[in-house]
Design a protein around this nucleic acid. Sequence first.
DNA 1: CGTATTATTTGGTAGGACCAATATAGAATG
DNA 2: CATTCTATATTGGTCCTACCAAATAATACG
Lengths: 232, 232
Amino acid sequence: MKTTETSRFVAELRSRILDGTLPAGTRLDAERELAVHYELSRSTIRAGLQALASEGMIQRKIGRNGGSFVTTPKGDSITSSLQLVIGTGGIAERDLMETRLAIEPHCAELAATRMSGEEIDKLSAIQSEMTAAIRPVGNPTDRPAFLRANADFHLHIALGSHNQALSAILKGLIGPIEALTDDPHLLGPGQLRELVQAHEHIFSAVKSRDGFRAADVMRKHLRAHIQLSSER
Amino acid sequence: MKTTETSRFVAELRSRILDGTLPAGTRLDAERELAVHYELSRSTIRAGLQALASEGMIQRKIGRNGGSFVTTPKGDSITSSLQLVIGTGGIAERDLMETRLAIEPHCAELAATRMSGEEIDKLSAIQSEMTAAIRPVGNPTDRPAFLRANADFHLHIALGSHNQALSAILKGLIGPIEALTDDPHLLGPGQLRELVQAHEHIFSAVKSRDGFRAADVMRKHLRAHIQLSSER
DNA sequence: CGTATTATTTGGTAGGACCAATATAGAATG
DNA sequence: CATTCTATATTGGTCCTACCAAATAATACG
């Protein structure tokens, strides 16, 4: 690690936050005060706070009674980090699909036992949107709507697991992956109907609180999906 | 989103990196040039570059022929993000263990078919370290060494999956979790030996390239671990 | 008492100066 | 000519000082 003044300051503050000396909600001193305290210029202090802010460890608010407030970074931080890495091609598509395959069946299993009634209703609504998109009374399929509903379905299963880590990870994966999957040659009308049917099976397993079956069906659904993609 | 000058500049640059206009390795203009180009002060430009740097999207190098270089953030970015969120208690322990349970068996399955000979040898060496730590010729167990070897074992299984996403995620989970698990009342001599034995089973499954068994044994191993933790 | 005005605190932006690291070009030396 | 040393130019890192803009508290006023 390059030991610049800024990074020293950041390390100091970060460790104080991590070891609990500065719990969430704590208000740090104003930049000008920190500067005299740490015997650094305000510029350097600002650089450090900026770094901590972009890591999600503090939030800064302007104005009187403003300042830098310690916050516990939530799942969003993981999600955006994933999106960045994936967005810049830092991880191969194969790896992403395998990760989905590890995460989603487990999510489905948990969701089956943990989803509330409202959440199940919501899932049903998403499923309806999906079916609606596939046949707008004779018209051609509304692909964007269909894909959005598809992603939403998987996302809500993950949220239904009531597990912040799992849902944060999937949230980061789902967008980029679906973007890669949108290939008209690959997803013809037949495939779309198969997809809806698979979701129907997953939904019914979740609704009947059958975690094992939910996981199993989800696994098969994803494997079929992968099978398609690999035929390019 | 707060639309400050800095964030506008960051957004601009970030999107240019994401859409491929500025591929990895590209050298950005010097801060002073960017300042005149974007009609902003160098302070503002610096703030923006600082943010991008702490997101891992650029690396900055001092000196002539230095500057800001576009880099594709790798798995490390995900790992550190996870560590931060977990370190500040942003995610419940239950959620973390469930995530492990989703990830690790899958890693083990992949590792069984993908690990190289050297990687398997390395795994064996780690296993030896672990057994060595548990009985240094009559002396009490070297707990730190034991726990380190334990974490290493799981980490190397993940690396053996040859999947950057999975190993990055596990890398972020394993440290914090093991720290939470180090409870002498929970892990007595008997538990330690059981742990070694479980690893032995996993190792043999991987060595014999039996992915299904590797996943199965890993799953049971983790469940047993969870069982213990929940008895607090 | 309620409302509008003023003051103060605090992060955001600007622009200047200088330092420290680093690579290049040129000069001195064998 | 080759090598080594010495400027020297480039670039991020730090410091300073001033001012702007937002947000809140304190105060004056109807």
